[in-house]
C-alpha cells in the first residue's frame, strides 16, 4: 500500500511547475476547454433537433459514431496534422464531450411534456421563447446529467494529453510508465479519479441550485434514460443510451 501512496504523500511533489497542484490546474484547464467546445457544438444541435422533432436519427448516429472513435488515434492524428498545439488536444477531448451532452440535450428537450409546449405556443410564445422559457428549463436535469457524464469522461481521458507532450495529471502516468515508477503512476491514477469525483460532486450541487424545484422527484427521467427514436417503435434496442461508458476512454 505504501507503494501506492508514497509519491502522493511526498511533500516535494506538491510544489513547483511540475508539482501536483500545477498538474491539476493544467488538467482542469484542458478539460474545461474541451467541455466548453463540446457544449458549444452539442447543446444547440441537441436543442434544435429536440425542438423541431426532426432528425432524431442524426443524434443517435452522431452519438454512437463518436463513441466508437478511439481517442488515442484521434489525438495522435490531430497532433500530427496540426502540430503540438492546444487546439488538436481540445478538439480530440471535445469529441468525447459531445455524445452525452448531445443525447442529454436532445432527449431532455424532446421529452418535455407536449401539453406544456402546445400551451406555450397557444398562449402566443414565439418559437425561441418556447425553447428558452419552457423547453430548456424543463430539460435542464437531463442537460446537466449529460454535462456530468461528459465531464467525467473528459477528465478521466485528459490524461492522454501527456502522451503528446502536454501537461496535466497524465504526466504522472506516462512518466511513471517510462521509468517504471509505480508510485508515481498510482498517484496519477488516484488524482485523476479524485478530480473526476470532485467535479462530479460540484456539478451535482450546481444542478440542485439551478433546476426548478417543480422538476424534482416523481417521474422525471434519469440522465441515463434511453433516447426513444421519434416513432418509439417497439424495438427499443434501436435507441442509443446516454449511459456514460467507462470514463477512462484512454489514458
Amino acid at each position: 500500500m505504501s507503494l501506492l501512496f508514497s509519491y502522493l504523500f511526498d511533500a516535494a511533489h506538491w510544489s513547483g511547475p511540475t508539482g501536483i497542484p500545477a498538474r491539476i490546474g493544467e488538467h482542469l484547464f484542458y478539460s474545461v476547454l474541451a467541455l466548453a467546445l463540446g457544449a458549444v457544438v452539442a447543446v444547440p444541435l441537441g436543442a434544435l433537433i429536440g425542438h423541431t422533432r426532426r432528425g432524431g436519427f442524426l443524434v443517435v448516429g452522431i452519438a454512437n459514431g463518436m463513441r466508437a472513435l478511439p481517442e488515442l488515434g484521434l489525438l495522435t492524428l490531430l497532433v500530427l496534422l496540426m502540430g503540438i498545439d492546444l487546439l488538436p488536444v481540445t478538439i480530440a477531448l471535445a469529441v468525447l464531450a459531445v455524445p452525452p451532452l448531445l443525447a442529454g440535450t436532445y432527449s431532455g428537450v424532446r421529452n418535455v411534456d407536449q401539453g406544456a409546449v402546445d400551451a406555450a405556443r397557444g398562449m402566443g410564445m414565439r418559437e425561441w421563447q418556447i425553447l428558452f422559457k419552457v423547453e430548456i428549463p424543463n430539460a435542464l436535469p437531463l442537460i446537466l446529467g449529460g454535462l456530468r457524464a461528459s465531464a467525467l469522461q473528459v477528465i478521466a481521458t485528459a490524461a492522454v494529453a501527456a502522451y503528446v507532450s502536454f501537461g496535466g495529471l497524465g504526466r504522472f502516468l506516462i512518466d511513471g510508465l517510462k521509468s517504471l515508477d509505480y508510485s508515481q503512476m498510482a498517484a496519477g491514477a488516484i488524482l485523476v479519479a479524485l478530480l473526476a469525483l470532485a467535479v462530479e460532486g460540484l456539478l451535482a450541487l450546481v444542478q440542485r441550485a439551478v433546476v426548478s424545484p417543480g422538476l424534482r422527484g416523481g417521474g422525471r427521467r434519469s440522465p441515463t434514460a434511453e433516447i426513444t427514436t421519434p416513432d418509439s417503435s417497439p424495438d427499443s434496442t434501436d435507441t442509443t443510451t446516454a449511459t456514460p461508458e467507462p470514463a477512462g476512454a484512454t489514458p
Binding site: L3, I155, A156, A159, G170, G176, Y182, L197, E245, G248
Partner: peptide
Amino acid sequence: SVLYTIPSLAVFIVLPAILGTQI
C-alpha cells in the same frame, strides 16, 4: 460509478501490481 472515473491506462498499469502479472 466510481470505477468509471478511473482512467483505463491507470487500471492497465496498476493491475499487474495487484494480479502479479507482467506489465
